[in-house]
Design a protein around this nucleic acid. Structure first.
Lengths: 178, 178
DNA sequence: TTAACCATGTAAAGCGTTACATGATTTC
DNA sequence: GAAATCATGTAACGCTTTACATGGTTAA
């Protein structure tokens, strides 16, 4: 996975490991991100497989190891792109806890849902901010679409948890008034 | 994570490792599932930490190692339940590919979206089937809610991908007719 | 001058899956 | 009699994160 994503970034231009990490932070962060501890070894592996080559430059006194994708790397990337995606499991931590909510008091459940909804709102705001910045200079519509997808995703999550929160509130007030 | 989920299952009744796996398959499968290779070592770890105890029985000639949660296990579980959930990243494989869709031909993109939408539909149908079975005998409303959440989640995913599919179709036909 | 950032990498540890190994019982 | 299911466990492997290690430049 990570190797194919790296190849994808290198399809467009030559980059250093550091550049790749920064590019991910700017564009794929909400659905794919990884650490230097994964990127550098992956680049080494790609190089020994012949999918990338590297040239070293010194810019401003700093070493720059610039990676270039090879024809075999392009072939590998295209092969990966042609594969069907398997549907992904949810694995949402909040959902795991919800499964066991019967072990919590209602006010604690309320508190948790509330906190989680706030965090989702923060995430949505952050991503909307990103989108407004991107509108100017990133033209690839598919990359914009992944951002929109992410915003819609978190909006849906917030709606779902808000609905659950409201239902709980109603149930509590119903129980108190009777 | 897995250890806390196991403790959660043991909060309700004593179970063997095998039982836990089967219980997960029936109830948490769409947002949490794991293999025996994770469950048995986790149970061992929980036992040496004093969070569970085990008794061995032979039923129908088969060894049954039945695990019981201890007071310290209950405390550990409650502590985990009281923590706030961190929001989870998407990490959807199809979304990773979409990011690089500009490297694919339109008909290949169409094919992939179509396949993925079908798989989402199959998942939705499967979960709806599960829900209709559950309606009878599982009473905990929170557990039902995680199922509903999952169904809504996959419905939202299907809507999102269908919207993208329709937009692409429209763009193609628009381009051909001019 | 100090913090932040640029830049590359390794090592340890954790987590999880897959495959392997074993053997009994039950159902078709 | 074969296949499926019950039942427990280990070993190898892979992937990823976190922490560590190093050292230069730039901006406050």
């Amino acid at each position: 996975m990570i190797e194919n994503i790296i190849l994808g970034f290198l399809m467009e231009k030559n980059l250093t490991g550091y550049d790749i990490k920064k590019a991910m932070e700017k564009s794929t962060n909400h659905f794919f991100n990884t650490s230097y501890g994964s990127i550098y070894p992956a680049l080494k592996k790609l190089e020994s497989a012949g999918h990338v080559t590297s040239t070293e430059e010194i810019n401003n006194g700093k070493l720059n190891k610039i990676y270039t994708i090879t024809e075999s790397g392009r072939a590998q990337f295209r092969e990966w792109m042609a594969q069907n995606s398997a549907i992904t499991m949810i694995r949402d931590e909040a959902l795991c806890r919800m499964f066991f909510f019967s072990f919590l008091e209602n006010d604690e459940i309320e508190r948790q849902l509330n906190t989680y909804i706030s965090e989702l709102t923060a995430q949505i705001d952050m991503m909307r901010g990103l989108k407004s910045k991107y509108a100017d200079y990133d033209i690839d519509p598919w990359k914009i679409k992944t951002l929109d997808f992410g915003i819609d995703y978190y909006l849906h999550m917030r709606d779902s948890y808000t609905k659950i929160f409201d239902e709980l509130k109603e149930k509590i007030s119903g129980a108190t008034h009777n």
